[in-house]
Each structure stands twice: as C-alpha cells, then as structure tokens.
C-alpha cells in the first residue's frame, strides 16, 4: 500500500519543517534521505499520524489517513523511533505491549527472532541492554504487531559499524521473508543505496 503526500506543509515550534511537499512512496523499500533538520523525521511521523500536517493531505492506500481509525493505522504502519524508548520491565513485557493493547496474543519469541535476537532475551531487564540491543527490541516490539509497513527513523544512527551492518542485514532479511515494506529515513547516503529501491532526498522541507 503506497503512501502519498500531497502539498504537505508541517510546522513545529513556529518553524516550517515541510513546505508544500508532494511525493509518492510505493510499496517496497523507500528511503527519505537528507541532512539533519531537513524534515525527514517529521515526514515519517505524518505517515502513522503521530502528527497531522498543517496543510495538504497524507494518503495511505489511496485514502486520507485521517479517515482511518488512528489506532488501527498505527498497528498496520509500525514505527521504530530513532532512539530507543523502552518501558520499565522485561524485554518480553515490552515486546508484548502492542499486541496486549490490541487485545491479541503476542508471539514474543517470533518477534525476537525476526529482530535478530535470541529468545533468551525475553526475560532480560529492558533497562540493562546495550544501545544496539535496545534498538533491536524496539524493532521486535514493532514486528510483534505484524505490521504491513515499517517506518524506520535513522535505525542505525546510534550504532557502531558492525551493529549497523547486522541491523541492515536483518531489515533486508525481513523484506525477503515477510514481504514487509518499509520507509526508511536516514542521513547516511550509503545506507539509502544499500537498503532502498527508491531514494528521495529532501532539503529544507522540500524534495531536492
């Protein structure tokens, strides 16, 4: 299900972050690349309605995202934020959070495996993980809802090169095994080329 942004303007803190942006993000792997402050993270958060635009429309599957139930949208279009933001408790409690909120059973071992973590991580304290491990738990948390699309905000910005390569391999593997589409935001041009079928560049809130 593709996304489309039509003449979208978004402001934050009095500053125009996206300025009349129009773009289509097809099924598959899309990447929005650009320097810091270009509006990439804001664009991502429009796609699952963590924010609404000040002008213009965001469409998912041809329909305005505002016409859908916002909770259902967020379960179908999962977001992995840039920085880990796990809750107190075990890894299993964090991973099962989304399904529990949706009233569904959670397959925690499967979600952990898909995110490249051993099932033994389930009982670990979420507050005592390395940054790389936390990032993978965030990924597992999103995957536990079996989303149709993943939104990834700078998924490897906090990681060293080896961890970055491992996470990229996991994302490519997820595409291959699950047919999962993703929209990736990154400032790393190399990563954009390695992971995406289509790369869009934005600068100062507009397509470059």
């Amino acid at each position: 299900m593709p996304f489309e942004l039509r003449d979208v303007t978004a402001r934050r803190g009095g500053r125009t972050v996206l300025d009349g942006l129009s773009v289509r993000l097809a099924d598959g792997a899309s990447c929005v690349a650009g320097p810091s402050g270009s509006g990439k993270s804001t664009l991502l958060r429009l796609l699952n309605r963590l924010m609404d635009p000040d002008a213009g429309a965001v469409l998912y599957g041809g329909a305005d995202v505002r016409e859908r139930d916002v909770l259902d949208l967020r379960r179908e279009v999962g977001l992995v934020p840039q920085l880990p933001a796990l809750r107190e408790g075990s890894v299993a409690e964090n991973v099962a959070l989304g399904p529990r909120l949706a009233g569904r059973p959670a397959d925690v071992p499967r979600a952990l495996r898909l995110a490249g973590l051993d099932e033994s991580f389930a009982e670990r304290d979420a507050g005592r993980l390395s940054v790389g491990e936390q990032q993978r738990v965030m990924l597992a948390r999103a995957l536990a809802l079996e989303p149709r699309v993943l939104l990834l905000d700078e998924p490897t910005s906090a990681l060293d090169v080896a961890s970055r390569d491992a996470v990229e391999a996991t994302l490519l593997d997820l595409r291959r095994r699950l047919g999962l589409s993703y929209v990736l935001v990154t400032h790393d041009e190399g990563q954009a080329q390695r992971l995406a079928d289509e790369v869009f560049r934005i600068e100062d809130g507009r397509l470059a």
Binding site: N48, L50, L71, R74, G78, L86, L97, L101, A102
Partner: peptide, 16 residues
C-alpha cells in the same frame, strides 16, 4: 515524551 510517543506508535490510546 519519546517514551509516550513510542507507546502511542504501538496503537495505545492517550489514556494508556
């Protein structure tokens, strides 16, 4: 705020 937003992104309501 980051933790709250990450929870909202999982389909939580504001109350949750």
């Amino acid at each position: 705020a980051r933790e709250i937003e990450a929870t909202l992104a999982l389909g939580a309501t504001a109350t949750e």
